[in-house]
Every structure is written in C-alpha cells, then in structure tokens.
Design a protein around this nucleic acid. Structure first.
Lengths: 208, 208
DNA sequence: GTATGTGAACTATTTCACAGCT
DNA sequence: AGCTGTGAAATAGTTCACATAC
C-alpha cells in the first residue's frame, strides 16, 4: 500500500471486486483483466486498476489478475481473514431481517447479541440469538467482545441508543434510524437510511 | 431552478433538510438560518445554501429561511406532493421489514403489492398486502400503476427479477441484492447493499 | 448587523493515455 | 500484442469569502 488517502468509494468497490473474484476463482477461472472485471461490475477498467493500485500491484502485464491471488489479497486488505462480532439494537422487522441475512458469517460478520427495550420482545429467539434487555448492553458488549453496533430502533430513541453504545465502548455504528447521530469524533458512524434511498428515487421520477 | 447539473448528494440532503424544516415548522419555529440548519444536520452552512441554490432562492437576507415556505418548496422539488406506488419482490424478512416500515406513506411512497416465487408464501398477508406469485407481476404492475420495484430476493435470482420488472414496464429499481444488475440504460437502479455497508465498517476496524 | 447567494478557490475522485512489462 | 500501473488531465463536489439584500 502506498501512502495516499483511499477514497471511501474505493473501499466499497473492493468488496464488489472481492465477490466477483471469489466467484470466478470458484469457477476455476484463473485470470481476469481489469476490463473484464469492470464489465462484470459496471465499472470502468481504469477505476478497477486505480482502486487496486491504492493497495499494491496485484496484476501481471499482458495477462491480468490471478483470481485466487487477488481474492487472497483482498481478504487481507478488507479484514476478511477474521470474524467481527456485531450487536443489533432493535429487534423489530429490520433487526430480524439482518439477523437472518444469509451468509453474514461468510462476510466475516457474526451477530452475537440482540437488544430491545420492549419487554414483550425480551427472551424471544431470533434465530440463534436471544433478545436481551438494553440495560445489559454494556456488560454483554464486554463479555462477547462486540466491535460493531447496528441501530435499528425508531428515530426517537436512536440518539439514546447511540450514547449507550459509546458508553459500552463500541466504536463502530451502523445507523438505520433516519436521524443524524451526535457522537464523539472517535466513533465511526455509517448511516443507512432506507426511506431516504427510496425517496431519492422519487426525485428522479419527478425530474426525469 | 438554474440549468446546472445537480449532484446526487444534494438530492439526498434535500430530504434531510425537508425532515428538519417539517419538524421546525410543526414546532411553530418560523425561520431558520443555513448555519442553524447545518448544525442540526451535521452539514456546513455553505453546503446548505449551495444545495438549495440549485433549485432557486428560498431565503431572506438577514433572517434566513421561512420554515413552512421551505417545506412547501422542497415538497414540490422532491415529488412529495403526490404518492408513488411501490412493489416489493421477495417476501422474506427484509421485504416484511420494508412493508412494515412506519410512515412509508408519509414519505409519499405506498407499497401496493408484494411478490414471491415461493409457493408457501403466496396468499399470506404482510400487513395489508397479500403476497402474489411473481408471474402476476406484469399484470398487477399495470393495474396498480406501479412506479418503483424493490428487489429483496437472494442474489442468485435478482437478475431474473430485474428483467421481469423491466418487462413489466417499471423504470425505477431499488436493489437490495448484492449483485450488479444488468438492465437497459433507461432504467434507474439504486443499489443498497446491507452487507457491504457493514463490511465497509470492518475495513475501518482493520485499518484504523 | 445578520444572513443569503454565488463566483472563485480548493479538494476529491474519475477518466485518459501511454510508457513499460510479460 | 495485450494489459498493467500511474502520472496528468478532466470532472465533480465542497468550502471559502464577500458583495449584496434586508
């Protein structure tokens, strides 16, 4: 890896490349060019080469990239050679959807705990995971070495939950609630706002 | 609106401003400055003004923006003055999560149909909506004037579903499956890849 | 005095284009 | 000949800064 700053978009695309070369590699396709890889992922050949270039030189002039080698290299770069423990806070439909996401584990992510504040949901099983009371968060986070918290509670309680996550020592938050969380700078927050994604489409419908 | 190209990020942020001024307006707060609005949304004052500037001049020098007027203007710009009909294809957990999303309707979106290929799910009710067989898609899309399709099926069948949506005349697709869809250029696809969002966090865990 | 609207400056990201390697 | 790796050019997006309006 050279010293340059890596754009967020690059990181996101590396996962796309990873999936593609994983498949190619399992199909026993030995090499792929940046042009072909771009074709399969709806990206340009230059983009593919530039993205990979942030992390090293993985290709061979004249023939392209060795799929299984590139797969291994991406695994290393992306932290896929280990598992990350995840807690879901909010055991509603969205929480359940995430808990049942097929192959989350294959992505190196393991949901090891689920929390809710609604006493009706406590003790219920979502897949393998028993829903716990939110007040257990801090203890469980330490016991189970949780790295990532996913907020799937309603907007009104998201900020409160975020603060509890911070308190519990979790530094990475994926936030599905449609509010801007106010947390210390040291905490990495990624917002995923499903309704906004949908709404954005309506703009294009109006302004096509 | 002036003739300049509007960045996608701007459109997404307009929805954030919209939510904020809606709330302010309902709290009887009459005006807000770009600086205050930025503060509340974790954005800069210049960003707020620039974003709004793409669509006109809504502010008053010296005092700021009239919340209820800005709300009305944004409603118009974003197509919130009407309802858009949505179909969900894939009646698993994620589909159910979307169908139960609170206040979807408030966002101007109405899910009017749900489809699945699994016969065990056909006829079941998800909220108000009865799950139909995917082969009914084309007919129902026309009958119910569906504008937007949401794909929540597994990766392996997503491309097939996308083709059926295109065939049914739907031009806007929100794709939750972790694959790059191959559709005609005239179709607008927005990818939301939940596992990739999560995976991106793991990169930052490794490389912090 | 306060806050907008907007060119200009700056920063980030993508695409081009080609020298150099296999 | 084919394809990578990478500076340079182009494009996109954000922040600055200030003239202007109230």
């Amino acid at each position: 890896m050279n010293g340059k700053k890596v754009p967020e978009g690059t990181i996101s695309r590396l996962f796309i490349y990873y999936r593609e070369v994983s498949e190619l590699s399992s199909l026993k396709i030995k090499t792929i060019s940046s042009a072909e890889l771009g074709e399969r992922t709806n990206l340009s050949d230059a983009q593919v080469r530039k993205d990979l270039g942030y992390f090293g030189q993985f290709g061979v002039s004249g023939s392209g990239y060795d799929t299984s080698e590139l797969k291994k290299a991406l695994e290393k770069i992306l932290g896929k050679d280990r598992t990350w423990n995840v807690a879901v806070i909010g055991a509603g439909h969205l929480g359940a959807a995430l808990l049942s996401y097929p192959g989350f584990k294959n992505y190196g992510l393991e949901i090891v705990a689920a929390f809710d504040s609604d006493s009706k949901r406590i003790g219920k099983k979502l897949g393998e995971i028993e829903v716990q009371l939110i007040s257990d968060l801090s203890k469980t986070a330490k016991d189970k070495k949780i790295h990532i918290g996913i907020i799937t509670v309603p907007a009104a309680s998201a900020q409160e939950v975020a603060e509890k996550l911070v308190e519990a020592g979790i530094e990475y938050i994926l936030n599905f609630a449609p509010v801007s969380l106010d947390v210390p700078d040291s905490i990495k927050v990624k917002d995923v706002d499903l309704s906004r994604e949908l709404e954005t489409l309506t703009y294009f419908l109006v302004n096509k």
